[in-house]
Amino acid sequence: MPRKVTHALRSDARDNRDRLLDTARALFSVEGLTVPMREVARRAGVGPATLYRHFPTKEALVTAAFEDQLRACRDIIDEACADPDPWRGLCQVIERICVLHAQDRGFTEAFLSAYPRAFTAAVGHGHMLEAIADLAGRAKRTGRLRPDFVPDDLVLMLLANKGLQTASPTARPAASRRFAAYVIQALTHGPHNTPLPPPARLATPEPGRGRARGREDRA
């Protein structure tokens, strides 16, 4: 095949992939992850075969679509862990991640539990959770973080923060920062603390959900 033709085909393939990712990000951000794959292809102006050639499953599409946000999350956590004051670092995680998640419904759904295996493999999702747990442990030892805090409380925070996505895009960052300030005050250890109910496991996928998703991925 002539070199110019080969280059044109590769360029077309890159353009199609970029257009699919841009379309997926826009749809997931507003409508969540329930958007069918064929709708992503239709909005991007390509056929379903082109979509599946680049992204065989919805898991692959979601992982690629949110790679930048995942990397931003990892950077936030890495910077916080490097802070010599672990309580200040944990507060920075809460403030910055709340704002990041308030802006994108699809990313919040994906991050919480929709595709845990893909996110773990993509940019160290498991590492991020372990790093937060270690940071929280160090913050407890300073006496600033209430001793009954558990990492799943951050999942609870993100679930509550997700409700801000119903507000106007311009209001979300300010509302999210205010919400984060309330969370930080609630987590601060002091004489006003009262015992909390037992923690709930919130980030574990439902049994059998992965098998069902295999059928949904090609919807």
Rank of each mutant, 00 (worst) to 15 (best):
L129N: 09
R172I: 05
A80E: 05
T142I: 05
T34Y: 04
H189W: 04
T194F: 06
M157F: 12
Y182H: 09
R71C: 12
F28K: 07
Q69I: 04
H127R: 13
T188F: 00
E59G: 06
T6N: 10
P116V: 02
R38G: 01
A65D: 05
N16R: 13
L70M: 14
M128H: 06
F179A: 07
D148R: 06
P147Q: 12
H125W: 13
L187K: 01
R88Y: 05
A122V: 03
R25Y: 05
A64E: 14
D78C: 04
R74T: 06
A200R: 14
V150E: 14
Y182P: 00
A110V: 06
E39P: 02
P48D: 13
L135S: 02
A102W: 00
G214E: 15
P84Q: 08
A13R: 15
V35D: 02
T120A: 15
D18L: 08
A49C: 02
C98N: 11
P36Q: 12
I76T: 15
R43A: 04
F55C: 05
L90T: 03
R213W: 14
R209G: 15
V99P: 07
P56W: 13
L135T: 01
A82H: 11
D217W: 08
R42S: 13
I77H: 03
R146Y: 03
H125L: 05
C81V: 10
R218M: 13
Q185D: 11
Q165E: 07
R177E: 09
P191K: 11
R14C: 08
K4V: 15
A24W: 01
S11G: 11
I94L: 14
R74P: 00
L33N: 05
A186D: 03
E67H: 14
P2F: 06
A60K: 12
T34I: 08
E67S: 15
F179H: 09
A131T: 09
T120L: 09
E216I: 06
V99D: 10
P169D: 09
A175F: 05
T194Q: 09
A26W: 03
A114C: 09
T63M: 10
F28A: 05
A41S: 08
F66Q: 01
T166F: 09
T108S: 10
R146G: 02
P84V: 00
R10P: 00
A26E: 13
A121R: 15
A171N: 14
A139Q: 00
R10Q: 08
A80K: 07
K162H: 11
D15E: 13
L154R: 04
T120N: 14
M128T: 07
H192M: 12
D134K: 15
L187T: 01
